[in-house]
Computed example of a mutant assay.
Amino acid sequence: MSVTPLPIARKRAASTRSLQKGQQTRAAILDAALGQASHMGLEGLSIGALADLTHMSKSGVFAHFGSREELQIAVIREYHARFEEEVFFPAVREARGLPRLRALFERWLRRVSVEVDSGCIYISGAVEFDDRPGPVRDALASMVRAWQGALERAIRLSIAEGHLRADTDPLQMLFEVHGLILALHHDARFLRLPGAVDRARSAFDRIVAHYVVGADQSAPPPPERKPRQAAR
């Protein structure tokens, strides 16, 4: 049996420790950058401010990403990964169809209600980069499309499972549900209107009631639920 010479083993161990330290440092920078972007937008990201927050040199921060653009893209990907962990993955454990669709919306709603005091990078990024073509816009649009695709699949599964009417237009329902979140973000974060979260939840119930199997299309929509708490 051959034995790895000790000097080589030491070099490999040192290399592994260096890699792990580098990954930890990069993760710390990303965490700080995500917090900064949530409050100031992707365009508000500053290498100098991140250097101060992480107690590093500007060149040290720059070395982990290579450019401000790469940093912005990395922040978008990190935000999406955390969004999936908090919203998507727990929801897809629910039963196929309407239970899963409801879970996706409810978890999305809760996340947005928490982001009232910071900001949603999906929404703020769309405002910043809607008319600015380039890699950052492409990365942001790709993440948003991925999330919308997950919602659309949940709607189609709800139709396939017989929970929603066969003539339901998935893209129309997706448009309506996504619009609720945009309205919630506007009313809760910009206007600071109380009860916005509960209004969004009630509006989702109305949308589902319109498309659910057995719904009487001539009947009036369900009554609005009494707000339980004011949005912060």
Rank of each mutant, 00 (worst) to 15 (best):
E94L: 06
M56G: 05
A81D: 10
E69D: 12
D130Y: 15
R132F: 08
G134L: 02
Y122M: 13
F65K: 09
A126D: 11
L104Y: 08
E106G: 04
A139H: 11
S113D: 15
G60F: 01
L109G: 03
E106Q: 10
Y79R: 12
V136Q: 07
Q72F: 02
D138E: 15
G48C: 12
W108Y: 13
S67E: 00
V127T: 13
A141V: 15
P99Q: 05
E85S: 11
H55A: 13
E128M: 07
D117R: 14
D52F: 09
R68H: 11
R102A: 02
R137V: 09
F62N: 14
G125W: 12
Y122D: 11
A74T: 04
G60I: 02
T54W: 00
V136L: 05
E84K: 10
P135Q: 11
A49H: 10
R107G: 07
V92C: 09
I73S: 07
V87A: 00
R132G: 00
D130Q: 15
R110S: 13
V61Q: 00
R132M: 06
S113G: 10
A63D: 07
D131P: 02
E78L: 12
V75G: 01
D138I: 08
M56N: 06
K58L: 04
P90C: 09
Q72L: 03
D130P: 08
L101F: 04
A139R: 09
L104V: 08
P135K: 12
R110L: 14
I121T: 13
E84V: 03
G97W: 02
W108N: 14
E69W: 02
Q72I: 03
A95I: 03
P90E: 06
V87R: 00
G97A: 03
H64R: 13
E86R: 10
A63Y: 11
D52M: 10
R107V: 03
A126V: 14
R107I: 04
L53C: 07
V127W: 14
V136W: 09
A91P: 00
I73P: 05
L98C: 02
E115M: 15
F65Y: 09
E70Q: 07
C120P: 01
L104F: 08
V116R: 12
T54H: 00
S59L: 06
E70W: 00
F129M: 10
M56H: 05
F105H: 10
S142E: 15
E115W: 14
E84T: 01
R100F: 02
E115Y: 13
M56L: 13
I121C: 10
S113Y: 10
G66K: 01
F89Q: 12
P99R: 00
L71G: 01
F129K: 11
A81G: 06
A103N: 05
A139L: 06
I123R: 13
R110N: 12
R137I: 09
E86H: 03
L53V: 04
D131W: 12
S118R: 13
R82M: 03
A49P: 02
H55S: 14
A126R: 15
D130R: 15
T54Y: 00
H55G: 08
L101K: 06
L98P: 01
D117Q: 14
R132Y: 06
E94Y: 07
R110K: 11
G48P: 07
G119A: 06
A141M: 15
V127L: 15
R102G: 00
I121E: 09
F83T: 00
L104C: 08
L98F: 00
A141P: 09
